[in-house]
Design a protein around this nucleic acid. Structure first.
Lengths: 214, 214
DNA sequence: CCCTTTACTGAACACTGTTCATTTTTAAAG
DNA sequence: CTTTAAAAATGAACAGTGTTCAGTAAAGGG
């Protein structure tokens, strides 16, 4: 009964083909501007067909999100290997920042958009997201175990670090750091390249944590 | 020539009436679901009329954003007055967190949405936003001057703190902290109320900064 | 070859933001 | 008052959206 299997395979291929097309379009336009019709046109099928493979636009973009997490995880994991745990933490943070800044649309979808979350509920869309989180906490714990960073609650510190870098990426890709560029504000941070600002601030926080010996 | 003035006044009133209606609707539904027609119906005018007062939906919501900043600023400013600068910083952060969590839609509009930013470019939509930022940096500098917190660059530290609290609010209101609630993750942070998680983590970071004496 | 099941289509529906010719209201001038 | 010019408000029309579903085409088993 190889036929059933082949159909199954083709179905899976097509599902992937759809999310590939959607991802491509999504890198050029915002979520709202990537219409089902555009996706359909790109995969050379009619609109209705998409609905045979994904219940609605949200579910389709939940799959895009899932793929984005995989990309992010594989990108971030490709960091320089070091014995020094603090250096590891630094590298992890910097690659997270880089991924977010270089892939603003995917980042939005992963961490900021409200849309696909309704459809999420269960399922393993966050599988690679969880893996990322585990990577962070394990490195933080390495730092703590090595006595390089003092923390009563390493899990909570991990969450704080995630929030910090997420916050910076979020503000950066939402153009909210532009306030530092106008004449609105008047402080030493003004007119610095916002990407550099983000990276340097991350570095500063790591140093604070490292120096902070009880 | 009181007539010209009266018309001017009426025009301004109507502009405000529109953004009030839009804000109300926006608290019930997402940006995408607050249509120009719904706003028009609520102010009891036809759609076209709205376009005589605001160039497009983005410009209209830029005004909503501006009003949101004023609300946020006035809410946050109503914090307990203390002599202790670190206590001030704590209160500021906690009220920021509270505003964000209690007004997720407004918060999105202020700090996360990409939409009204194109229309922003110039103008004083961020007037109260800037005021908020100045409040933060001044309190941080108080802490530094009082020797309660050590920081080479107080402006940068302010940015880091903003990023931290923004990051937490952002993740919280985007339901991204739900990963701590499923069985996905397995850590001490799981199944804690996410609002409490955010507040406690903020507290932890303040303590780290305070204890971090060179 | 037939026939049932599966796959696919695209017109239709109710919505969206935006425009603009048309109509109504307003205020000044005669 | 009446006339008239200007200002304000209208809502149908346009091109787009997500989603559905009756109808058509293709495929696999007997």
């Amino acid at each position: 009964m190889g036929i059933q299997e082949r159909k199954e395979r083709e179905k899976e291929d097509f599902r992937r083909k759809i999310i590939t097309a959607a991802t491509e379009l999504f890198r050029e336009e915002t979520y709202a501007n990537v219409s089902m019709r555009k996706i359909a046109k790109r995969v050379e099928y009619s609109v209705g067909t998409l609905y045979l493979y994904y219940k609605d636009k949200d579910e389709l973009f939940l799959a895009v999100q899932s793929a984005a997490f995989e990309r992010a995880f594989s990108f971030i994991q490709k960091m320089q290997t070091t014995a020094d745990p603090v250096e590891k933490l630094r590298n992890l943070g910097e690659r997270y920042l880089r991924f977010g800044i270089e892939n603003p649309d995917l980042y939005r979808l992963m961490f900021m958009m409200e849309h696909p979350m309704d459809a999420m509920k269960e399922g393993d869309a966050w599988h690679s997201g969880i893996a990322l989180h585990n990577l962070l906490t394990s490195i933080v714990k390495e730092c703590v175990d090595a006595g390089r960073i003092v923390a009563d609650d390493p899990d909570r510190l991990s969450f704080a670090l995630w929030s910090l870098v997420h916050g910076m990426v979020s503000l950066r890709i939402s153009q909210r750091l532009e306030i530092y560029n106008g004449e609105h504000l008047n402080c030493p941070l003004c007119n610095i390249d916002t990407d550099q600002l983000v990276i340097d601030t991350h570095e500063m926080m790591i140093q604070i944590l490292e120096r902070h010996q009880a």
